[in-house]
Structure formats: structure tokens, C-alpha cells
């Protein structure tokens, strides 16, 4: 009897094991699909800092080409815009990852938001001041006493530093979401992103030859901009997930730069889905400029990395202008350079 039971048990054991391995094999051989992984909690949400455009091409491309999926991430890209500030969404947990300007992030960090930078994407500032030659501005000195339209807060750091550099007294007006104030002549100088508003001005009929431009990074104000951020807790819970997200995003950017037409197709898909009033030439310009600022020629900084020195330069300026009181520690702020390039 025992022998029989024992045999049965043995048999059962064996079959259980067999069954178990079979099930395991079955599970392992299943093609990865969101549902399966969702159950495992690998869905992440990502919020770009503005409405869909080439500024976020790398992420869209990574999504469409499956780079996130390849690293085990099921990414949901939210629609960004003025009503969806990433700092808020990250803070409230509505988004796991988001992009922010370095300056904005430092300010938030100083305010107590527990954000960390897991990947510095834009290495070079694209902020510029534009003026029409017809208003008489050819050199920085010509700006003295003129009206300048600037965006708020952290976007004013570099321009203010610039004015201080050149000992200029200007009348600063807040700039809205369009360049119309500048186009209509309401101000002589306006802030613009090289990849965005500058081209909008050209697309409104002003020829580049008719403008005087001051790219602030040419004036020593090399503030890196877009970076990928998440809550500290998100990182510590699963560092690899964050690293994977950044790595896949970087892969996406690299692919976008080497396949611009395909990348543009993807971007336009998101643009049209969001019914945005932009066009392909605009997005094409933007993508090209993103490459200039994400992979600036002659730079020795690796993609995704933030140098401590640069960080402190930026933070110091913020402090100088009284935007922050204390400078957050770099180590707390930025983690991931080595891990990004460990391979």
C-alpha cells in the first residue's frame, strides 16, 4: 500500500513538477503583450512638457518602434500642453516620468519637490533673443531701453544674465504663447526657442536675414534644458525601470536622428491626433535643431549625462537672481550617468 501510495506520490510529484515546468515554459514562451505585463505592473506613464511636437520625437519613436517594449516597459504617453505641467503630474503621481527644463527642475527641487534627473537630454540651451533689424538692433548694446518680451520665471534667468553681461536696461514684458506681439511690433526683442518660436517667425514671413538673433548659449549661458525626471521614490523602487526608460528614450532619439523622415511621420501622427495647428516643415526644423542641442557638435558629454560643474553653474545663476535660496545637492539631483553607459 505504502509502496503504491509512495509510487502515486512520487508520480504526482513528478507530474506536478512536469506540469509546473510546462506551465512555466508556456508562460515564458508567451509573446510579451501589454496585458500580460500590465498585470505585472510594468506600465509607466510619461508626460512631455508641451503639446506633441518634434521636441519629443525620441519618445514617440521609441514608443512606435518598440524600444520601450523591448526593455520590458509598457509606456503610455500622455498628451502634454499648457494645462498639464509635468511638475504637477509627477508630483501628484499622475505621471511616472516627465520632461522638464533643468532650471525648472532645480527650482522645484529647491522648493521641496522630490524630483530627480534620470537623464539629461538637451545638452545645450536653445533659448535665444530675436529682434528685427528694422528696429535698429544689430548688437546687444542696441537693446538698451527697448521693450523685451520674455517668458516667465526660469526662462528669464539666461536673458537677465545676458542683460547684466552687457549692462543693458530694458523693459521686460511677459510673453504669451504666440510671437504675435513681436511680429506686430509690440516689442523690439522677444525670447524664442531656436527650435520653435524662431522658426515660427520665419514661417510668418520674416526672412532670417531680416532678423538679429542672440543665441544665449553663444554668450556663455550654456544651460542644458530638457531632461527626464521622476520622483525619487519611483527611482529607488526600481532603478532599472528608470534606467531602461531613459535608455529606450535615448535609443529613440538616436533612431530619430538617423531616420528623420520616418521620425517626422511618427511625430505628425501624434500632431494630427492632437489636432494641432502646425505643419511638417515646422516639425522638420524642430527635429533638426533638437539634434543640434541633444548631440551638439564638438561636445564631449555623453547622451543622457549631466555634468556636475554645469549643474552648479546653472543653480548658481538661479540663486544669483534670487529664484532659489539654496542650491540642491547634485548627487541628490542626478544619479544615472554611469548606469546609463554601463554597457
Amino acid at each position: 500500500m505504502t509502496i503504491m501510495i509512495k509510487c502515486t506520490f512520487d508520480f504526482l510529484k513528478k507530474s506536478m513538477r512536469l506540469l509546473f515546468s510546462l506551465i512555466l515554459m508556456g508562460l515564458l514562451s508567451l509573446p510579451p503583450f501589454p496585458g500580460a505585463w500590465a498585470a505585472e505592473g510594468n506600465t509607466v506613464t510619461f508626460i512631455p512638457q508641451w503639446t506633441p511636437q518634434s521636441q519629443f520625437a525620441g519618445y514617440y519613436v521609441a514608443q512606435e518602434k518598440g524600444f520601450y517594449r523591448n526593455r520590458g516597459l509598457d509606456v503610455k504617453i500622455l498628451k502634454g500642453g499648457p494645462d498639464f505641467p509635468p511638475s504637477e503630474l509627477l508630483h501628484t503621481g499622475k505621471a511616472d516620468f516627465g520632461t522638464l527644463f533643468l532650471t525648472t527642475a532645480i527650482v522645484k527641487r529647491a522648493k521641496g519637490y522630490k524630483f530627480i534627473n534620470i537623464g539629461q537630454i538637451v545638452q545645450r540651451s536653445a533659448l535665444m533673443l530675436v529682434a528685427k533689424k528694422s528696429s535698429g538692433i544689430k548688437t546687444p548694446a542696441d537693446m538698451n531701453g527697448k521693450k523685451v518680451a520674455l517668458w516667465g520665471e526660469e526662462f528669464q534667468i539666461q536673458p537677465r544674465a545676458f542683460f547684466r553681461q552687457h549692462h543693458l536696461q530694458v523693459k521686460i514684458l511677459p510673453q504669451g504663447t504666440t510671437m504675435n506681439l513681436f511680429l506686430r511690433g509690440g516689442v523690439e526683442v522677444a525670447a524664442a526657442m531656436w527650435y520653435n518660436e524662431y522658426y515660427r517667425v520665419i514661417q510668418a514671413g520674416i526672412d532670417p536675414e531680416e532678423m538679429t538673433t542672440f543665441l544665449l548659449s553663444d554668450y556663455g549661458l550654456k544651460f542644458p534644458e530638457d531632461g527626464i525626471y521622476c520622483l525619487e521614490s519611483t527611482y529607488t523602487k526600481d532603478p532599472q525601470k528608470s534606467i531602461n526608460f531613459v535608455l529606450a528614450s535615448l535609443e529613440g532619439w538616436r533612431y530619430a536622428f538617423s531616420h528623420p523622415d520616418e521620425a517626422l511621420d511618427i511625430v505628425m501622427k501624434y500632431v494630427n491626433a492632437a489636432n494641432l495647428p502646425t505643419n511638417r516643415p515646422q516639425q522638420s526644423w524642430m527635429l533638426k535643431r533638437m539634434q543640434d542641442i541633444i548631440q551638439p557638435p564638438g561636445t564631449d558629454v555623453l547622451m543622457g549625462c549631466l555634468q556636475e560643474e554645469t549643474y552648479y553653474q546653472v543653480a548658481q545663476e538661479l540663486k544669483n537672481f534670487g529664484v532659489i535660496e539654496n542650491i540642491p545637492e547634485f548627487q541628490h539631483f542626478y544619479r544615472s550617468c554611469e548606469s546609463l553607459h554601463a554597457k
Binding site: 510673453q175 504669451g176 511690433g185 509690440g186
Partner: peptide
């Protein structure tokens, strides 16, 4: 509204 086009531009000009 101060910084919206419909207000800001005619105001400045």
C-alpha cells in the same frame, strides 16, 4: 488676459 494677444498687442501698440 493681460498677456493674451487680444489684449497685450493693442495695448502695447
Amino acid at each position: 488676459y493681460f498677456f493674451l494677444d487680444f489684449y497685450q498687442i493693442p495695448r502695447e501698440l
